[in-house]
Amino acid sequence: MNSNQTVEKLRQMRLGAMAELHYQNVKDNRFTAFTPDEYITLLADHEWEDRQGKKMARLIKGALFKQKASVADIDYSHSRNLDRNMFGRLATLSFIKKKENIILTGPSGVGKSYLAQALGNQACLMGYRTVYATTSRILAKLKLSKVDGTYLKELRKLQKTNVLILDDFGLQAFDAAAREILMDIIDDRFNETSTIVSSQIPVSAWYDIIGEGTIADAILDRLVNSSHRIDLKGESLRKGVLKNE
């Protein structure tokens, strides 16, 4: 058997990691230590792990996170009304399988964005497609897509996203166009996918911020009633180490 030909065939079949490992093993004469079954398993596992790693990297890059956030790095030492056990359960991502939402509220600087992105990063590591965006920017983008005719295409992309993170919700008032777009987003995702919302505004004030009673009722009914809610308290963590927002 010509090892060079085997390596080339593996590469042509887009089994690059397997090809590289086989090439190194042949070069160093390491493959003789394995049975045929063990060696095939070794190559297959190496290729699978390489592809999983690349997939995670693609998902994290495509999520467009504002900062690097990890569930493992969350600081529970501050008094901010963050229950470790509750958040730990959320970090298992069972809420995604159940098509549930998460709402994070609290004053500026208490870590809402960090917590949302930590969950988003965890979702990427588990193979879920995630998108992070500030609410104002995603609404502005979709307004422009109505002009260039790509609105439905952009909505379908969001609908296929397992986890959508809407940060800084309610910082800007909703005009009629923004309300309709938000309604389209939430309606498409209802009982299909999960949405994480972070906001400085308490949920009790969202009705007035969204405006137009009928649409506000419809949005809140779909978003809030199927959500896990975390209401953070305390002073801004930015006064100390800039870590959690």
Rank of each mutant, 00 (worst) to 15 (best):
M1I: 11
K9Q: 05
K9M: 03
L10A: 02
Q12C: 03
A17D: 09
M18R: 06
E20W: 08
H22M: 13
N25L: 14
V26C: 14
D28G: 10
N29P: 02
R30K: 14
F31A: 11
P36V: 08
P36Y: 13
D37H: 04
D37S: 06
D37V: 02
E38N: 05
T41A: 11
L42F: 04
A44K: 06
A44R: 03
E47L: 12
D50W: 00
R51V: 00
Q52L: 01
G53P: 08
M56H: 04
M56T: 09
I60T: 12
K61I: 15
A63E: 07
L64Q: 15
Q67V: 15
Q67L: 15
Q67T: 14
A69S: 11
S70E: 15
A72I: 06
D73W: 05
D75K: 07
Y76P: 12
S79W: 01
D83A: 11
M86Y: 14
F87M: 08
R89C: 00
L90K: 06
T92F: 10
I96N: 05
I96A: 09
K98P: 01
K99A: 14
K99W: 06
E100R: 08
N101E: 04
I103L: 13
I103S: 00
P107R: 07
P107W: 01
G109F: 05
K112E: 09
K112M: 07
S113E: 08
Y114K: 12
L115F: 06
A116I: 11
L119N: 07
N121Q: 14
Q122R: 15
C124W: 04
L125G: 04
M126E: 15
T134G: 08
T134V: 10
T135I: 03
T135R: 04
T135V: 06
S136M: 10
R137M: 09
R137F: 07
L139F: 03
A140L: 13
K143E: 13
K146A: 08
T150R: 13
Y151M: 08
L152M: 05
K153L: 06
K153Y: 08
L155A: 14
K160A: 15
T161A: 06
T161D: 05
T161S: 08
N162T: 00
V163C: 03
D167R: 02
L171C: 04
A173H: 15
F174Q: 00
A177N: 15
R179M: 03
M183H: 12
M183S: 09
D184G: 05
I185D: 02
D187W: 00
D187E: 10
N191F: 12
N191H: 13
N191R: 15
S194L: 05
S194M: 04
T195I: 13
T195A: 09
T195R: 03
S198P: 03
S199E: 03
S199A: 05
V203D: 04
A205D: 13
A205E: 13
A205W: 04
W206D: 01
D208E: 15
D208I: 13
I209E: 10
I210M: 01
G211A: 01
E212Y: 07
I219V: 12
L220V: 00
L223V: 02
V224F: 01
V224A: 06
S227V: 00
H228E: 01
R229I: 15
D231E: 09
L232V: 03
K233E: 14
G234Q: 03
G234C: 03
E235N: 14
L242Q: 09
K243C: 07
K243G: 11
K243R: 14
E245M: 11
